[in-house]
Amino acid sequence: MSMAETRAYGRSGPIAGPGVGRHLLIVDDDDRIRELLKEYLSREGYRVTGAAHAAAAKRMMELIEFDLVVLDVMMPGESGLDLTSWVRAKAETSKTPVLLLTARGDPEDRIEGLSRGADDYMSKPFEPRELVLRIEAILRRTGGKPIGPREIKLGTAVFDMERLELIRDGAPQRLTEAEAQLLKTLALHAHAPVERMSLSPDTADITGRAVDVQVTRLRRKLEADPKNPRYLQTVRGVGYMLAPD
């Protein structure tokens, strides 16, 4: 990967983000770009799901309500433009914001994307911070779901999602960075199952075992009975769910 690509897709290190906790769908046939976008946007607080082509994206959108969809225009088979038209034609997804990404920056291409119903259009390569700002601007315009409270209560424990601090029975609990980020992601989607693999920032961990280890440790810090968790629950076949008071 070139230095330009490194800068364009945020590999130089995490950039502090708003932690808005929206659920984004990234659709790109390039595995490398898709995973880089997932990694960067996850650091910014977003819950991110990826799809390698339009058919997979359609299946996901028929099952899950996304806050915004980021589409690559140039994909084999059905293009991002065609998928945008499909999103706008379906009643269930017609109001879902769409941001198009493409290596083609001709004015005609931008006009075509916007005429199909896209909310915005970005040309590759781009600065990752600009992508986040564009996403935030779209969500503001389209009236995204409200952000939850700063703190959540879990029995005798309180988790501060801004400071990433966990207090139980008046005593601070030490959290690793990975544990804190996992708990924050679950807290932002409280009472809703979160896919196990989407909780793992390490794309090399295809088994998800690292997430399971972190969940086990968090339960020891949260639960009165870690073997019979009340707050950090397992959702079989999906992943985990946080159920605060």
Rank of each mutant, 00 (worst) to 15 (best):
Y231V: 07
Y240T: 06
I167V: 15
I147P: 00
R47H: 10
Q173T: 09
K184I: 02
I167G: 08
G19H: 10
L101D: 09
M61C: 02
G21S: 01
G239C: 05
P201T: 07
K184H: 08
G10D: 05
P76S: 13
A8H: 12
Y121D: 05
A118S: 10
D169L: 12
H189I: 01
R110A: 13
D109I: 09
D119A: 04
V211M: 06
L242H: 07
G13D: 15
Q173K: 15
T156E: 15
V87H: 03
R174A: 15
A52N: 03
R110I: 02
L68F: 01
E5Y: 11
T185M: 15
A55L: 01
G21P: 00
L100R: 02
R43E: 13
P97G: 01
I135A: 03
G117V: 05
D202E: 08
G144V: 03
V235E: 11
A210N: 13
L164A: 13
L68N: 00
A190W: 07
P128Q: 04
E136L: 01
K90N: 06
F159W: 13
P172R: 14
E151M: 13
Y9E: 04
G45D: 02
I15E: 14
A56M: 11
G113Y: 12
A180Y: 06
P76C: 09
R168K: 15
A51Y: 12
K153C: 04
I152W: 08
T84N: 00
L182W: 03
D106S: 15
E136Y: 00
R47T: 02
V158W: 13
P14M: 02
A204C: 05
G144I: 02
A57E: 08
I64M: 07
M74A: 07
V27Q: 01
M60R: 12
V27S: 01
I167T: 14
G113Q: 11
E130Y: 11
K90A: 10
L222F: 06
V132S: 08
V238W: 06
A89W: 00
A57S: 10
